[in-house]
Simulated assay, not measured.
Amino acid sequence: MKYSNHGANPDLFYRSANIKKPKEAIDFSTNTNIITKKIILNINKLAQEYPDYTHQSIKDILSVKHSIKHEEIIVTNGINEVIYLLSNIYKDKKVALLKDDYTEYKRAFKDTEIIYFNNIYEVNDVDILLFSNPNNPSGLYEDLSLQISKLSKTMTVIVDESYIEFIEDKKHHIDSNILYLRSLTKIYHLSGLRIGYAFGDEYLIKKLSSIQPTWSVNSVALKASEIYLNDSKFLIKTREFYKKETVFLKSRIIKLGYNILPSSVNFFLIEVENDDDIIIYLLKRGLVVRHTRSYPNLNGNYIRVSVKTRKQNLKLIKALKEYKDESISS
């Protein structure tokens, strides 16, 4: 079976597996928040007007949130736009990536000299270090502030915190060589709108802004994000839900005899003996999980699942139990 580098596309997954998609399919491969809120927008008005390419309103909110200046923020078409802008700026530099990390980093920096490490404690003699924390695919968060402070000040450190707000409101001091990336599509379930931002040293933000296409972020994404960002109770509700439901799902899967790797957020890795077999088994039952064949150290020995509603999680638990029972009996 041919696997895509990304999850969150059940239709493509079913076509690749040559399996007819059931009427109801639950996508456990996507890591976006299942907690949402009703938003009423005037789509006609937003669609007919040019977006504010200065992103003034959303920067007002973000500057207060992080206690930083407008000039230290860039709002982008998802985190991917920031990554590709960075690859343009640093195309003649030496980049350090972790072996098991967000696959788009490698694609963005394909024309750059890339050196791979197992963890940031090994990193040395590079111009740029880019990694996710919490890690994608594992979901593990580590407080690496001390280790980052020990790195050379000539090295630009880019920390992708796309999933950090599932667990805490992390505060940072602006440092001349550190850039933080934040996704608004994951925590606010706005994947179809594509919006994120980065914050850091004013000089680096200015360089990124100078090559960013005008109007790269659409009006609907900006307005929807502003509404979510102004709702202080939303993050509290999200964290309370996942704190309870993640423990429930993990404990039930472990009870079935599966091994789960440590994770701090709303998704985690399950060790499996035959990833193809279990992925196809679950697909036939309308359950889509994420493969790990695009990560060298994982190499298909795990599947990744995200936490859904209790009803949906129970369906996954039931299917994993039946798979385990059938494997033992055969």
Rank of each mutant, 00 (worst) to 15 (best):
K321Q: 11
I260F: 05
N299L: 07
N18Y: 02
E245T: 12
L204W: 01
K65F: 15
N124A: 12
K38V: 08
L261C: 03
T214Y: 12
S63G: 10
K233E: 14
D100S: 04
V159Q: 04
N301Q: 12
S152G: 13
E273V: 11
L144W: 03
S264E: 06
D125E: 15
F199E: 05
I19S: 12
L314N: 14
R304V: 07
N133T: 05
E168M: 13
S330H: 14
S209T: 14
H6Q: 11
K94T: 15
I317C: 09
E72N: 13
N119W: 02
F268I: 00
V157F: 00
N297H: 02
P137L: 02
L204H: 06
F131V: 04
P213Q: 10
G78L: 07
N5A: 10
I43T: 14
E168V: 05
I178G: 05
K170C: 11
T185V: 15
N33K: 03
I35N: 08
S216F: 07
V157L: 02
W215L: 14
K186L: 08
I128T: 04
N31C: 11
K318S: 08
V289I: 14
L287M: 04
I26E: 02
S4I: 01
D169P: 00
L181V: 07
N77K: 15
N18H: 10
I253A: 08
V247P: 02
S225M: 07
N124F: 03
K110H: 12
V75N: 03
G139M: 04
L98Y: 05
Y258A: 07
I178M: 09
Y53T: 13
E271Y: 10
I120V: 06
R293F: 14
T154G: 05
E240H: 11
D275M: 12
V95Y: 00
V220L: 13
N9G: 08
I68T: 08
T185N: 11
Y84W: 09
E322I: 10
R290F: 15
D27R: 03
D201Q: 11
S63K: 13
P51V: 05
W215C: 15
S294P: 00
P137C: 06
S232V: 12
Q212S: 13
K243Y: 08
I128F: 03
L140F: 09
N88R: 13
P296N: 10
G257T: 11
I254M: 10
K91V: 07
L256A: 09
S219Y: 12
N33G: 07
G7R: 01
Y116Q: 01
D92N: 14
K284S: 10
T238S: 10
D101F: 06
K2G: 00
